[in-house]
């Protein structure tokens, strides 16, 4: 499996929180080559490979941050709110795509006020979300025909190569996690497993965390590993809060994570010579691991992250080697039958 191709395929299908159908179809189609797979009413994609032994779940979230249409103004401009943690600093003059009625995609551009209209104090501040709008180049009547309140908006797809096997693009958070899980499943193909394997691509991580909560409850795994992205080093960001691109899988250690799982992941990475770094957090992890660990009667949960720059912008940056390392680590972990 070529992970770059898979990643591009995954980011080409839009799926802002609560409206993950297009992304779900693409992920489910790939996963179905490896195990019985279904898209559930929750919006989650779930694959289950039966076998002997405990249930190990691998999870990554399907949804991406974006915007949600709140009003179509008489001028034809589109008002919106955040849907997940969109960053208003990247919005002026940004390319966006509105997924309108019947999945029709409409190009839009977020307005940017010309500097000559800005007072000096406005020049130093970004506009608040409620003062922005999307230009779709249509009059009110035509806009109404294709766009309605509640439609989701994403950054327009960007995808390209940088030096050192690094890529930039939209929604690597968390399609890179989905790609890593798919690659892990591919690495496990034909191998004898001593466990049942459950794959959960969860809806709604960026807003409510509802997808992971109901997904973990429904399948009540014995243990689960979430794969998400985390901050990579860049100018202006404290070094102690970030991982490094190219330094491998970021193994999470936190009070809310299962220490035994974290320890075993580190041990496997060492013995199998898989590049890794640790990420220590003081409380919750701000990932689906927080929801899964308390689902039902509780689930032993681990977290592996892919280092990522420019998180929640249209030009997130990652290094493919790190995604590969996460995939390998997940596969070895499953082969080792986890901690049960």
């Amino acid at each position: 499996m070529d992970i770059k191709n898979i990643l591009e395929k995954l980011i080409s299908s839009k799926g802002v929180s609560g409206n993950e159908a297009l992304a779900a179809n693409t992920a489910a189609e790939i996963l179905a080559d490896y195990m019985p797979t279904e898209i559930q009413s929750s919006g989650n994609v779930v694959g289950f490979l039966d076998g002997e032994g405990p249930i190990i779940m691998l999870e990554a979230h399907l949804d991406q941050i974006g915007l949600i249409v709140t009003d179509i103004d008489k001028s034809g401009f589109i008002r919106f709110a955040k849907c997940g943690g969109a960053d208003m600093r990247v919005l002026p003059a940004a390319d966006v795509t509105i997924v309108g009625k019947d999945g029709v995609e409409i190009d839009g551009i977020v307005i940017s006020t010309p500097p000559h209209l800005a007072k000096d104090e406005d020049k130093k501040k970004f506009k608040q979300i409620e003062d922005l709008a999307i230009d779709v180049g249509l009059c009110y009547e035509d806009a109404l025909k294709v766009i309605r309140p509640g439609d989701r908006v994403t950054y327009k797809k960007a995808f390209g190569s940088l030096m050192n096997n690094r890529l930039y693009g939209t929604s690597f958070d968390d399609r890179a996690g989905v790609a890593a899980v798919l690659k892990a499943v591919d690495l496990l193909k034909g191998q004898k497993l001593n466990c049942k394997l459950c794959v959960l691509f969860a809806a709604l991580e960026e807003t409510t965390g509802g997808g992971a909560a109901v997904g973990a409850f429904a399948h009540q795994p014995d243990e689960s590993i979430s794969v998400d992205v985390s901050f990579a080093e860049s100018p202006g960001v404290p070094e102690h809060k970030t991982g490094k691109l190219g330094s491998g899988a970021m193994i999470g250690i936190a009070p809310t994570l299962d220490d035994e799982i974290s320890g075993k992941l580190i041990k496997i990475a060492r013995t199998k010579k898989i590049k890794y770094q640790t990420e220590v957090m003081g409380g919750q992890t701000s990932t689906n691991a927080d929801k899964i660990s308390v689902a039902g009667r509780g689930v032993k949960t681990g977290l592996i992250s892919i280092p990522l720059r420019n998180m929640h912008s249209a030009v997130e940056v990652l290094q493919l080697d790190d995604v590969e390392a996460v995939a390998q680590l997940l596969a070895e972990y499953v082969l080792s039958k986890g901690v049960m």
């Binding site: 960053d87 940088l162 901050f231 860049s234 100018p235 701000s286 720059r309 420019n310 929640h312 940056v317």
Partner: peptide, 9 residues
Amino acid sequence: VTGLSPVHL
């Protein structure tokens, strides 16, 4: 790409 500090931090 022009970079930026993650909004979360």
